[in-house]
Design a binder for these strands. Structure first.
Lengths: 158, 158
DNA sequence: TTGCTCCTCACGTCACGTGAGGTGGC
DNA sequence: TTGCTCCTCACGTCACGTGAGGTGGC
């Protein structure tokens, strides 16, 4: 009762790496830094990842690649989120209400900072897109002026 | 006649670094790699940047930080764009029409790849924003459930 | 002249890449 | 048993950070 159904931890490191487009070295490095460890190990010592582990790695990658945080900052974010997860499930013997509020506040603040950052990044991308389209128009002009014709491959909308 | 009005190159490296939020080391490193050199030097040997140089650095930073290219790839992109700039201004003794078309085609292709990449990145950011908002709602729930109240600072829209 | 900024090495660091040499598991 | 994948060092690399020691310019 109250126990979460355990996911099987049967994914090997190479499989996870391929799925996420990262190297096995990267996954071992994240583990070395304490960011994600596989949920299990085989008797022989090789890593066995569960889906939750994979999701955590995806999360790390998003924070790193899309938002540009370094691994130290990401570690701190994960810690805050982990503390909240503990808080959410731990009803008896939990921390004091004051401590709970502090943890929750930390997560809310983090969430708001991230939302603001994502908003700024989107603005930057919109600016770049506008620039690129302006350049594309200028390329057309040069082509017309020189009497050259260039081949336009369809630009995929996503 | 036909000469572009020369911009003054009077910005010192520290000033440029402060304006762009990079280190002077970064600017010297980009120069070492051949990505941007200051338009001029003082008699004593210290770097003097012009506005065009600053714009080029901004461009490099966007490609690197927003789109995630490494400096080698960025160097290749800048080369393609530089060749087009030469093509655009060089009317006599210019390359053959065939060569011109090839250069222009290269730039058009690059532009289209970049537009596609920006589109994908924007999609990723939208996904992250949706996730963050979902999380924020769950934080609200936990707060309500635990009878805690958290402080919401206004999230700046940009 | 004083103080700040600039200069060039050059070693350190972060986030991995890339083998070396050996053991594990369907 | 064979082949592929995994393991742990450990050195290399990219994009800078960070002084060391010295010269430049309003």
């Amino acid at each position: 009762m109250g126990s979460v159904p355990k996911q099987p931890a049967d994914l090997r490191i190479g499989e996870v790496a391929r799925r996420l487009g990262v190297s096995t070295r990267t996954l071992r490095y994240y583990e070395e830094l304490g960011l994600v460890a596989p949920s299990d190990r085989s008797p022989g010592g090789s890593r066995r990842y569960a889906e939750v582990d994979v999701e955590r790695i995806v999360h790390i990658r998003e924070l790193q690649q899309v938002l540009g945080f370094d691994l130290d900052q990401i570690g701190q974010m994960l810690e805050a989120e982990d503390r909240l997860d503990v808080l959410r499930t731990e009803y008896r013997n939990g921390p004091s209400a004051k401590r709970q509020a502090a943890i929750l506040q930390e997560c809310v603040d983090l969430n708001q900072r991230l939302q603001a950052l994502v908003g700024r990044k989107m603005g930057q991308l919109e600016g770049m897109l506008a620039e690129l389209k302006a350049k594309a128009r200028r390329y057309e002009e040069v082509a017309a002026e020189k009497g050259l014709d260039v081949h336009h491959t369809a630009v995929p909308s996503r």
